[in-house]
Design a protein around this nucleic acid. Sequence first.
RNA 1: GCCCCCAUCGUCCAGCGGCCUAGGACGCCUGCCUUUCACGCAGGUAACACGGGUUCGAAUCCCGUUGGGGGUGCCA
Length: 446
Amino acid sequence: MTCRVRFAPSPTGYLHVGSARTALFNWLHARSTGGTYVLRIEDTDAERNRSELTDSLLAELEWLGLDWDEGPFYQSERRDRHREVVEDLLVRGLAYLCDADNHEVAGSTLVDGLAVRFRMPAAETVAFEDVVRGEVSFSSDDLEDFVIWRSNGSPMFLLANAVDDADMGITDAIRGEDLLSGVPKVLLLLDAIGSPRPTYAHLPLLVNERRKKLSKRRDDVSIGDYRARGYLPEAMVNYLALLGWGPPDDVEVRPLAEILELFRIGDVNKAAAFFDLKKLEHVNATHLRALERGEFLERVAPWVGDAAPWPTESFDPVKFSTMAGLVQEKLRTLGDMPRFVDFLFLEDPVDDPESWEKAMVKGVSAAEILDGAALAMADCPWEPQALIAAVSEVGESLGLKLGKVQAPIRVAVTGRTVGPPLFEAMAECMERGEVLRRIARARARL
RNA sequence: GCCCCCAUCGUCCAGCGGCCUAGGACGCCUGCCUUUCACGCAGGUAACACGGGUUCGAAUCCCGUUGGGGGUGCCA
């Protein structure tokens, strides 16, 4: 039998990294087993029933490449069906009306202003086999009668969730562990309406450095923010797959298509996983480096366009693409690009105090180096090897190796100690006059 | 409080009773390469929470302790 899974987010206006991981695992499970992946928006709460809140959610899922087969279905549009189930439960005495003080009110039909609670059976053990956790069981005695229908005439999450899973023929419910303790209630509900129970798989939570569930207040949880900072969707999805799961061959950085081949929902871990930005950066940098030149240029384009820290009109795409090849392997995110090339498009290089301190103040013989370089570079051929030779000569006369001599020149020309290969950048993308002007400018500031 | 879940290097993942003197990755440190940074290469650092069992044999199974987390709404 082929499976049917669903990703059922509540619209919050953005896609949470934890939700993205859940969506990914559902997608992987469906795609690797030939199943069907359903998208359902759980917006039973009126507050969340606003289209702009779901638009970004869908856009981010698409960005990640997690396409769905059916939906999106909106829970808010299924209210009549939910009402029908609640009324049936009421008639059968499995649920009862209750007022704001939680007092039972007699009656077997819905009444405006009254909520409905599911009647918890006594002394019943509710057990199920979780695909990642094994057997989990609860006693109904520890559970309260819970609200399934609000006094304002809308269904509660647990009811809508159970009914929709049943109606949509969901066979595998894959979701976060924070929903684990709600399972017995859903199971009882499912039993009450005579629907088969789906198989559950509760994924370990994603936590922060303090081992707490990722929260939007303290942590960077929005997929959209990572996107804006220059993370690639393939890297994001790759890293997310590594939280709670690992490939059997230990090859961690790889395309989604390969992960799809190796993924087994039953291999997922039970323990919570720390969302490690350092590792995400590593995965991203690796994917970035693997991009072909043309592809890379297309992907960074947004970061060197209107949002870039230089006047749009001074941008030179030819210089940029020449330089891009030299810095592609140095980036961790696409967002790193501007600071590697800004010196080419700014009137004067940025003034990075730390770099200045390091190369001009603490560095040895900055003045002599700049003077010597200005002289040597004034008439040598304008090509990398000639520049290296000229500068090396200056260095020799001062007893310094190339690595040391280039530092003040780099800071004078680019503003920073970190950047693309200096001599290539100067020879291929800058005019002699401009380079000399910047060296003189820096010399004057010493 | 009550219920549920979890527990291998700082972090993520491997290990599913003997192949473990516990493996890989990120991070960190050292060296090499070197026009900075990065990449690459060669090394290094570092873990089975604790206590009882079961077994010829336990990181692997069971129980307890401790620690951590989640849930406990007319939110989802």
